[in-house]
């Protein structure tokens, strides 16, 4: 009896999701292998065709956020499609996108000093089918503007990423998820000295229809790999390496 009840609830949840604007993953949906993080999402699939919000409070965490987003975008842009990176002034260094699997010349950088213009560009871009992803550095965004962005992606199924650097207040947005990405101490690979693979503390604060959580991920060999807590703590400081 209880089994059938659980089935009913599961069925109801399934039929509720599309009503809330969530499109279940089809066969054509791009899968982003995020390891354990995927279990937090509805349907265990990274929601593409939605707007994700990333909060960063320091330049270091902005850099980590950029790396993390580039890693995700590399899966979305697998078919050589273009990405748009909208910022007030470009600080992203294109050659550094290559290690994260994204060809730097696949990214079109748009510089718009005014925040209003950046939001306009993002909305126009999100309406445009055929883009792999739209990444925008926008600090202040109100709920209405975020609703417009959400409506745009529901039509076009383009994935949007908003990087909010030191926002004045963490207001509610219509985005599907809110992330905090911090750099985490890397561990040496095969006992080699020096810095290891880029490692992130991924904190998923809000996820619509999903379960928030916190994980440690490492970008290794063009994919995200989970870092076991034991491995994270066991990484001792390696001696400083000198290259002659």
């Amino acid at each position: 009896m209880s089994q059938s009840k659980a089935d009913i609830i599961h069925q109801l949840q399934k039929s509720l999701l599309p009503l809330q604007g969530y499109k279940p993953a089809g066969d054509n949906t791009v899968r982003v292998p995020l390891g354990p993080v995927n279990r937090a999402f509805p349907g265990h699939t990274f929601p593409v065709g939605a707007v994700h919000e990333f909060i960063s409070n320091s330049p270091e965490s902005t850099a980590a956020t950029c790396g993390f987003i580039t890693g995700i975008a590399s899966f979305l842009a697998a078919e050589k499609a273009l990405c748009l990176w909208i910022s007030a002034r470009r600080q992203v260094f294109p050659p550094a996108l290559l290690p994260f699997g994204l060809l730097p010349h696949q990214v079109v950088f748009i510089e718009a000093p005014a925040e209003k213009e950046r939001i306009w560009v993002m909305e126009e871009a999100l309406k445009c089918e055929g883009l792999a992803g739209v990444i925008a550095e926008v600090s202040e965004l109100d709920f209405t503007a975020s609703r417009r962005l959400q409506l745009a992606v529901e039509q076009s199924q383009v994935t949007g990423f908003i990087i909010r650097q030191q926002p004045r207040q963490l207001n509610t947005l219509a985005s599907i998820a809110r992330w905090h990405i911090h750099p985490a101490a890397s561990s040496s690979y095969n006992q080699l000295p020096g810095i290891g693979f880029p490692r992130f503390t991924v904190q998923l604060d809000k996820i619509r229809n999903g379960k928030p959580g916190q994980w440690q991920l490492e970008w290794r060999h063009n994919r995200f790999a989970e870092v076991m807590p034991a491995a994270a703590t066991g990484a001792a400081a390696t001696p400083i390496r000198k290259i002659v």
Binding site: F109, I110, E111, C128, E129
Partner: peptide, 23 residues
């Protein structure tokens, strides 16, 4: 669509706002 989007952005922000980089 993409080309038209870039045209619209260039029309609003100017051609210098759009950049793509090569090594």
């Amino acid at each position: 669509h993409i080309a038209e989007l870039l045209d619209r952005i260039a029309g609003k922000l100017g051609n210098d706002a759009i950049k793509r980089y090569l090594p």
